[in-house]
Amino acid sequence: MNHWLVKSEPSAYSWDDFVNEKRTFWNGVRNFQARNNLKAMKEGDLVFFYHSVNNPAVVGIAKVVREFYQDPTTDDANWVVVDLEPYQVLKHPVSLQKIKETPELQNIALIRQSRLSVMPLKKEEFDLILAMSE
């Protein structure tokens, strides 16, 4: 199993929106590195849901329930989506500030490539963020 983080501005699509819908396809990715990360996602992978911009924080966990396919919002074959379902709300959101203050997380893409919207995490990084939410 692989681990990931996806970012969304809560004013555009929040964790609450996601939970209410119960399932979504993760669309709007228009960066080739992020697209390649979507293509690498496998059914069953766990994905942190991160609210960006205002009060940036990891707020929940999603699960990949369908691997990549053509983004239905565009005819451009370069872009793909995956289907996600809510898996678990975090007990306490893990803020970007807390992540930045944690030495073991200094090399994650959230810090190094702050504009990347879909990124991989090592299992140890995922587990550490999850532990920080307790």
Rank of each mutant, 00 (worst) to 15 (best):
N2H: 12
W4C: 02
L5F: 02
K7A: 15
S8T: 03
S8I: 01
S8Y: 09
P10C: 05
Y13F: 08
Y13M: 06
Y13N: 03
S14R: 05
D17W: 00
F18R: 08
V19A: 05
K22M: 09
R23G: 09
T24M: 13
W26K: 09
N31F: 05
F32C: 11
F32S: 12
Q33K: 15
A34N: 01
R35T: 14
N37Y: 09
A40H: 09
A40L: 13
A40D: 13
M41Q: 07
M41D: 03
M41W: 02
K42V: 08
G44V: 11
D45E: 04
D45P: 06
D45H: 02
L46C: 06
F48Y: 03
F48K: 00
F48T: 03
F49N: 04
H51N: 10
H51C: 03
S52I: 03
V53W: 09
N54T: 14
N55H: 13
N55S: 15
P56H: 01
A57E: 08
V58I: 13
V59L: 04
G60Y: 00
I61Q: 07
I61T: 09
I61R: 12
K63T: 14
V65Y: 02
R66S: 11
E67N: 12
E67Y: 14
F68P: 00
Y69A: 12
D71P: 15
D71A: 08
P72T: 14
P72F: 15
T73F: 14
T74Q: 08
T74A: 10
N78Q: 15
W79K: 07
V81P: 04
V82M: 11
V82D: 02
E85T: 07
Y87S: 08
Y87A: 06
Q88L: 14
V89L: 08
K91W: 11
H92R: 15
H92V: 14
P93R: 03
I99S: 08
E101Q: 11
T102W: 11
T102K: 06
E104V: 12
L105D: 10
L105H: 06
Q106K: 07
N107H: 01
I108G: 11
L110N: 05
R115Q: 07
V118K: 04
V118Y: 05
L121S: 05
K122T: 10
K123Q: 03
K123A: 05
K123M: 00
F126H: 04
L128I: 07
I129N: 01
I129C: 06
I129R: 00
I129S: 00
A131G: 10
M132V: 01
M132W: 05
S133E: 06
S133F: 13
E134G: 09
E134R: 11
